[in-house]
Design a protein around this nucleic acid. Structure first.
Length: 473
DNA sequence: GTGCTCGGACTTTCAAATAC
DNA sequence: TATTTGAAAGTCCGAGCACA
């Protein structure tokens, strides 16, 4: 519903998702402050620009300077705050925070909760840079305290004041000295529409408490001046540190203790917490320490991250766009419409339960066939000869070991789970979408009524009938 | 050492096919 | 109608390269 008013000129942004021509000289954001009430999401028709080595003009440096340099300590603290056992994530409000609960973890134990709104001298370097305050205004990490406090927080004029992107007056200004990281930031009217009914809980403003939860740490740009507030105590992360950070989180004990169902409805604070271990990586059960954690993707990357093939987050502007000063152009990318009416080949038939049982008992080799979950019956079960079908490409890795009974037997059910040719034409690939000649040239000219999510046909602007998806060969 | 590009691995979505 | 399937559509990791 949102994109119905999308001006056509926006389409070039999407033109070449993998064209990395992000102009280094055109950055509408560089010389502008971020004015969420004024900026138009369609404001820039220019290609989003990445600041080049010399792009950090003084103004932007100033802007960047006021961004918090997120760091592991903060992140851990945030997790600790969640983890302090009461499960009340409203507890980010200062009123509910107590030293006792804060001390639930060693990290938090060093947090100085100052009821006077003053920053107590940190007793531990761990939190030296956190500027944790409890001034009754529920502000944290650089309070927006209006007590004329001694906090070093300086509200940045370019960013909305915390109250403007807090959903309630209690203003849980977690990290409120930072740019509007919140995916729940109250956007301008246009921005709200941009979310085109996004079901992502992070974008509908319905979740109040973690609207500004701990983001991923941002790495300080090498040319940025050190933060006056934090830099001395909170060194920025290098690229490698940043990567290590994510690696660590991906397999840390924090993660494993907070695992949530991957297909959760994002209602759990842990999983919905941007930057949290479980948000970024879904653990794979108890074997998380040895297995690579599952990658977690955002539902809709912004156009800039999409172009750069880089990780985005649900906030708008996202962390990466903030980092590069692309806040003006940080909007959700338009998603293609899935074509309907495409005939698909006959699916594998599920095996009758009786057959499964008999097959297990009939197994002549000590394999793990019995261990095949009911829901997995038939999966990977096609005859190896059928794997030549291009539609079964995801099974190809198993073809190499098809001859090895000991290797594959737990995957390959011996029954005729494969192509069922009795009820229809044989030949799996004959019915695949790939065979549709029009596949690469989707036409929306017939007035796609579409779902509420996609009310306007994306114009990829390729101007090339053979183009279609840029990812297509 | 750091940033950028981009191929392709990986994940998510959701309509078609199938089961009940 | 409910569930499963599986390809489309998407995200973003990480290797390679360029540059300061």
């Amino acid at each position: 519903m949102a994109s119905t008013s999308m001006p056509p000129q926006l389409s070039p942004v999407k033109q070449e998702p993998h064209v990395k021509q992000e102009s280094l000289n055109q950055s509408p954001a560089l010389s502008q402050a971020y004015h969420p009430q004024q900026q138009s999401i369609y404001h820039s028709q220019q290609a989003p620009a990445y600041p080049a080595s010399s792009q950090y003009a003084p103004q932007q440096q100033q802007q960047q300077q006021h961004q918090s340099y997120y760091n592991i300590n903060r992140h851990i603290m945030a997790m600790s705050m969640q983890h302090n056992g009461n499960g009340n994530h409203n507890n980010h409000s200062g009123a509910n925070s107590t030293a006792g609960s804060a001390a639930a973890t060693p990290i938090m134990a060093s947090a100085q909760l100052d009821p006077n709104g003053l920053s107590s001298a940190p007793s531990s370097p761990t939190l030296n840079g956190l500027q944790y305050h409890n001034n009754g205004g529920n502000s944290h990490f650089g309070s927006n305290t209006n007590s004329g406090s001694t906090t070093p927080y300086i509200p940045h004029p370019s960013y909305p004041q915390p109250s403007s992107y807090s959903n309630n007056n209690s203003s849980n200004n977690y990290y409120n000295s930072s740019p509007p990281y919140s995916s729940h930031q109250q956007p301008s009217q246009g921005q709200q529409q941009q979310h085109h009914g996004n079901s992502t809980p992070g974008s509908n403003g319905s979740h109040l408490q973690f609207s500004s939860t701990a983001p991923s740490p941002m790495r300080q740009h090498p040319q940025q001046p050190p933060s006056q507030q934090y830099s001395s105590l909170v060194p920025p992360l290098s690229e490698s540190q940043y990567a290590q950070y994510h690696q660590l989180l991906g397999s840390s004990a924090f993660s494993s203790s907070q695992s949530t169902p991957f297909h959760s409805n994002h209602s759990t604070p842990y999983s919905s917490m941007p930057g949290s271990p479980t948000h970024e990586y879904q653990q794979l059960g108890d074997s998380s320490l040895t297995q690579k954690p599952k990658r977690r993707q955002v539902k809709n990357a912004c156009v800039n991250c999409q172009k750069a093939c880089k990780k985005c987050d649900e906030g708008r502007p996202c962390a990466r766009c903030i980092k590069y000063g692309l806040t003006d152009t940080c909007v959700d990318s338009t998603r293609k419409i899935r074509k309907k009416g495409i005939k698909r080949g006959p699916y594998k038939r599920r095996a009758p339960p009786s057959q499964v049982g008999s097959s297990a008992s009939a197994s002549t080799t000590p394999t793990m066939r019995n261990a095949v979950p009911t829901g997995m019956q038939g999966y990977m079960s096609e005859p190896v000869t059928a794997l030549s079908s291009p539609t079964q490409s995801h099974m190809l890795p198993f073809t190499s070991t098809a001859g090895s009974t000991t290797t594959m037997s737990h995957m390959a059910a011996p029954l005729d789970f494969g192509y069922d040719t009795s009820g229809g034409p044989a030949g799996y690939a004959l019915h695949t979408q790939r065979m549709e000649p029009s596949y690469n040239t989707p036409s929306y000219a017939n007035g796609y009524s579409g779902s509420s999510l996609y009310t306007q046909a994306p114009n990829y602007g390729l101007g090339n009938a053979a183009g279609g998806s840029s990812n297509m060969p």
